[in-house]
Each structure stands twice: as structure tokens, then as C-alpha cells.
Design a protein around this nucleic acid. Structure first.
Length: 400
DNA sequence: TCTGGGGTCCTAGGACCC
DNA sequence: TCTGGGGTCCTAGGACCC
């Protein structure tokens, strides 16, 4: 007997979570009922729309667009700042609830999961309705559920009419429900590929499914073959499924003002490295490859990677490597963003129990150093971090 | 005060080895 | 002095996802 998958997708996740939170805290307006959005802060040059309400969407507001352009279309738009740690908690609550309905839960992102259907719990529709109702009653937000015998089609189905809806798209239904759709509705087919396909006269899933696969291979390589197969109901293979252990850990930050001074840049790199290494150690992993990414004030992005001789997760060591890489690649332009990504990961046995104590002590020492400097100079980011580097170089302190 | 941040995978090309 | 191919590893950039 073949499996049936449900794809659970929180409707307007960040915005819904924010709305529920605010109602609980006593606010009277439900953000979901007015033109609203969760958005970054233009002062920090991160002013883009991360999630929007239905009324905002109806006025043309799009995810990823700058706030200023959203406000042009929708002058009454209410923007609230994002709260990622809160969203993480809501996401975990959802997964916990889903454990009552499935023994195979595969998180796909913070607001999406694939689960397998258990026939003992009732018919497919009964179970789907129960899930939907319990989420709404206990957690306060709505979801879409897509149902199919493949994960790929379940994902496509959950994207049909929203919100608070259940849709099926079984392989046996692709002719009526999938093929008539524009290719943009296909999962794993983005804007660039859609544009390419259109120049070939392919604008619907039907046309894609009825194009010679060799033509697709010539123009889109292996992706062309994959898309052709999806159009015929083939499932995504495991390479598109999330794995338990991360393949890379990275961080990047946009600077409030463009960075031009080398000391400021080094402070900024240290800042990003500290966050990244911290997360890597939490995962008990070490990295063999370090990648530095720069975005210039003109939005040009380039990167350089280096594979090191011995895997590490030490802040100090990685900071030194990052500076080396940076020096090799930097052409002197004003920088808007700096990112560090650590990849080629392997488990770090040394961060297990026996060294846990000393590791913590070191962490505390660093925290104290940062705090001391903070107290001395105030909370200006650059002064703080710059001082830390200076302090580090002068005394050759192990900042890890 | 215009344009985020966190990921995964693929491709093309170069280095290097046999 | 010329000409091979296969295989692996690494890197830079790009497409895609949420």
C-alpha cells in the first residue's frame, strides 16, 4: 500500500503568528483583518516585506518588496517588526501537535511540514479536517493542507485556494488539476526558469509535460528532466528533503551604513563570525570550508571560499581565516553586507561532555569581555567590536 | 530611508593524478 | 615535441526554496 502525504502550510505564517500573539496580549485589532505586514526596518536598510495580510495582498503588496513601494500601493499599511525566536516556538508547537496525527513528520521550513497519513485515525478527509480544526482551536491560526500520493504534488496542492482549505492532487488527478495550470505554479520552478520556458513557447504544465524531454535537457540540463518528471507526477527524491544534520551554517548582516574603513570591516567580520561559530558549536560540528560573501553598495555579490587543513569551530581561528580570504578578494568597494558560511561539516567530538566545562568557561570569559567594553564605551556596535579586536591583537587573547 | 537572511543543490571550469 | 581520457576535488556563481 502506497503512502499518502499531507503538506501542512501555515497561512501567512509570520503575520498570523504575530496577529495571534498580539490578540493574546490584549490588542483588539486582528492584524489579519487589516492591511498589514511583518517587515524589516528601513533605518537598518532591511526594509522589505516578509509577510503580509490578505487585505494587503489584495492591494498588491508582495513579499520581498521594499516597504516604500508597498506603502505606495497601500498607504494604510500597518508594519510590525519580525520576531524570529517567537516564530521558532510557534513552529515547534505545530510540529508537536502533528505528532498526534503522524509518526513521520518532515519539517520543510519554519512554517511547512510533510507528514504521512495514518489510515487507522480515520478517512483522509476526516484526518485532514481534524488537523486543521485542532490547529485553529489550540494554536489560533489557519493552515492549508495539500494531500497526494507524492510529496511534490501535496506541496503544489497546499498552494491552491487559500486560506484554511484542504485540497487533493493525486497522481490520478494531474490531468484535470495540474496540467491546466501556468508553469509558475510548479514547485522548484522559479522566475528565471519560467522565463526561459516561455521563450520556448511553454507556459502551462500541460505543454511542459508534452515537450520532448531532449529539448528540455538541452535548455535546462538535469533541471529540465526533473521538471518534466514532476509534470508527470514523479516525486522529489531525497536530495530535496531536509536532513537531520545541516550541510552548512551561515550568517550575514547588512551594515546600517556602507563599510569603507578596514577596521570597521574587520569588526563587522568578527561580529558575523562570532554568531556563525556559535551556531556551529551548538550543532557540535566543525567546518572544513569557509566562505566569505560580500555585497557592495551597488548590490554586486561575490564570494570566495577556502578549504582549510584541519576542521575547526573556533571563533579566533575562523576569524583569522576570514580576514585572509577577505584580503585576497576585496577590491576596495564600499560594502553593504558581509556574510560567512561554514560548510564541509563534520561532527566535533571535542565539544561533547569532557570539554564542555572549559568551553563554557571560555564563552563566559568572552561574554564578560564584551560586557566590560560595552559598559565602558556604550552600546555603539562598531566601537564595541573594534575595541574587542584591538584588545585581541594587543594581548593575543584567545577570544574563543 | 530602496532592494533580508537562512539554507540546498547544480554547473562549469580548473587543478591534479593515473 | 604531440596527443588521449577518466576520475576526483575544489571553487565561483547562480537558481531555487521559505
Amino acid at each position: 500500500m502506497s503512502k499518502i502525504y499531507f503538506h501542512i502550510d501555515v497561512n501567512n505564517a509570520f503575520l498570523s503568528w504575530e496577529a495571534v500573539k498580539r490578540l493574546k496580549e490584549g490588542e483588539t485589532t486582528d492584524l489579519r483583518t487589516i492591511p498589514s505586514a511583518v517587515a524589516g526596518d528601513p533605518k537598518n536598510r532591511t526594509g522589505i516585506i516578509l509577510a503580509k495580510s490578505k487585505p494587503a495582498k489584495d492591494m498588491g503588496v508582495k513579499t520581498g518588496e521594499p516597504i516604500f513601494s508597498a506603502v505606495k500601493k497601500c498607504p494604510d499599511l500597518v508594519c510590525v517588526p519580525p520576531n524570529h525566536s517567537y516564530y521558532e516556538k510557534e513552529s515547534l508547537k505545530l510540529r508537536k501537535l502533528l505528532e498526534d496525527f503522524s509518526d513521520e513528520i518532515e519539517p520543510y521550513s519554519i512554517d511547512e511540514c510533510f507528514i504521512t497519513y495514518i489510515p487507522l485515525l480515520g478517512s483522509v478527509m476526516e484526518v485532514a479536517n481534524n488537523i486543521k480544526d485542532r490547529i485553529f482551536n489550540e494554536l489560533g491560526f489557519t493552515v492549508n493542507i495539500g494531500i497526494s500520493d507524492t510529496k511534490y504534488l501535496a506541496k503544489v496542492a497546499s498552494d491552491f485556494e487559500k486560506p484554511n482549505k484542504i485540497h487533493t492532487l493525486y497522481v490520478s488527478e494531474i490531468k484535470e488539476k495540474f496540467w491546466p495550470l501556468p508553469i509558475e505554479n510548479m514547485f522548484l520552478l522559479g522566475g528565471k526558469t519560467a522565463a526561459k520556458l516561455k521563450t520556448l513557447g511553454i507556459d502551462t504544465v500541460y505543454k511542459l509535460a508534452h515537450t520532448d524531454i531532449n529539448i528540455l535537457r538541452v535548455h535546462l540540463k538535469s533541471q529540465g528532466e526533473d521538471l518534466y518528471n514532476y509534470a508527470w507526477g514523479k516525486d522529489i527524491d531525497e536530495r530535496h528533503s531536509k536532513k537531520e544534520t545541516p550541510k552548512s551554517v551561515g550568517h550575514s548582516k547588512t551594515s546600517v551604513t556602507d563599510l569603507t574603513n578596514i577596521e570597521d570591516i574587520h569588526s563587522f567580520i568578527l561580529d558575523v563570525v562570532q554568531d556563525t561559530c556559535n551556531r556551529l558549536r551548538k550543532e557540535s560540528m566543525k567546518a572544513n570550508t569557509i566562505t566569505v560573501t560580500l555585497k557592495t553598495s551597488n548590490f554586486k555579490v561575490y564570494s570566495m571560499a577556502q578549504t582549510i587543513d584541519f576542521a575547526t569551530n573556533g571563533t579566533n581561528e575562523i576569524f583569522k581565516d576570514c580576514k585572509n580570504i577577505f584580503n585576497k578578494m576585496y577590491k576596495g568597494e564600499p560594502l553593504r553586507l558581509i556574510g560567512i558560511s561554514l560548510s564541509n561539516l563534520e561532527p566535533d567530538e571535542t565539544t561533547q561532555l569532557n570539554l564542555f566545562e572549559t568551553f563554557n568557561e571560555k564563552e563566559q570569559k568572552l561574554d564578560k569581555t564584551v560586557d566590560d567594553i560595552l559598559n565602558k564605551f556604550g552600546n555603539s556596535h562598531l566601537i564595541t567590536r573594534g575595541s574587542l579586536i584591538h584588545h585581541n591583537n594587543k594581548n593575543d587573547t584567545d577570544i574563543d
